[in-house]
């Protein structure tokens, strides 16, 4: 195993964690201890991913300015042809992988802050009804959803990884929908109209509205991948509808972990900057 793969958690680890989490919620009805184990794995994975991206962030400027293929600056190391070839390609790869740093963009950080506000208010409002143990289990599940969303973005900049993730999440979403379809109750959606508006629902609605607004804003600013962004909006609408029509079931949790992971593929397309426009200037 090379140095890189031994240290940096890759796409396979992410896919494995998502699959284990979603399947355990779908089939095994996890106990709080199981949720705890999953939470520890997710936390360790996110910690490693942060360290990996931090390393990239700190060294990016240094590497991008250095001529790594130069024999004069790295004389002692540039010995083998393989090494030389690697040195020729490495800066280009590094430049591309620097797009993974978009996952710490201000827009995503605002999303995470809103999600944390939602979790904090959930603790505040439910502490009287739920025991401390159940509350912690629910918060751990919230964090899993946030982690699935955040970590998905750090891979989705790559075309190959996003294709793999698209196929994976497509299959997993279909599986979740297959299990959740009999439980969908549209009456609870209609009942929301008459129910008094809770602050908790309001914060969740704010989070969803912020997400939708960011997507729409990027379209108006001339983002390139309009189709992807529209698909993301559709997915977001479907997730919201399913959340309110499937009240507090394990299938709903599985669907949200899978759904927000899936959504991260479309969210990263928001950052594709505006189109290049070539203008022909005519000299008079």
């Amino acid at each position: 195993m090379s140095y890189y793969f031994s240290k940096h958690p890759g796409l396979f680890t992410y896919i494995l964690l998502i699959a284990v989490s979603v399947l355990s919620f779908l089939y095994f009805d996890p106990t709080p201890s199981m949720i705890g184990v999953l939470s520890v794995f997710w936390g360790m994975y996110i910690c490693m991913r942060v360290l990996s991206l931090y390393e990239l962030s700190e060294h990016f400027d240094l590497f991008s300015s250095q001529k790594l293929s130069s024999k004069t600056s790295n004389y002692s190391l540039a010995k083998l042809p393989k090494d030389l070839a690697h040195r020729a390609v490495a800066p280009e790869n590094l430049k591309r992988s620097a797009f993974a740093l978009l996952c710490v963009h201000a827009r995503t950080m605002v999303w995470l802050a809103l999600a944390l506000i939602y979790a904090a208010y959930y603790i505040h409002s439910s502490s009287a009804q739920l025991s401390q143990y159940d509350l912690v289990a629910n918060i751990a599940v919230f964090f899993m959803i946030g982690a699935a969303f955040w970590a998905g973005q750090s891979y989705a900049y790559s075309n190959r990884a996003s294709r793999i993730l698209f196929a994976f999440f497509g299959v997993l979403s279909a599986l979740c929908l297959y299990h959740a379809a009999p439980l969908i109750d549209l009456q609870s959606l209609l009942a929301l109209q008459n129910a008094p508006l809770k602050v908790q629902t309001l914060i969740l609605a704010l989070l969803l509205a912020y997400t939708a607004f960011t997507l729409i804003y990027s379209i108006t600013r001339g983002a390139r991948n309009t189709l992807s962004i529209l698909l993301g909006l559709t997915l977001l609408a479907a997730l919201s509808l399913l959340y309110f029509s499937l009240s507090e079931t394990q299938q709903n949790t599985a669907l949200w972990i899978c759904g927000w992971g899936f959504f991260s593929l479309f969210w990263i397309r928001v950052y594709s900057m505006s189109q290049k426009r070539y203008v022909l200037y005519q000299c008079e």
């Binding site: 705890g36 939470s39 794995f41 997710w42 942060v50 995470l112 918060i139 751990a140 946030g146």
Partner: peptide, 9 residues
């Protein structure tokens, strides 16, 4: 956030 998640776990 990840440290908190490990702690909760």
């Amino acid at each position: 956030f990840s440290c908190l998640q490990i702690f909760l776990g």
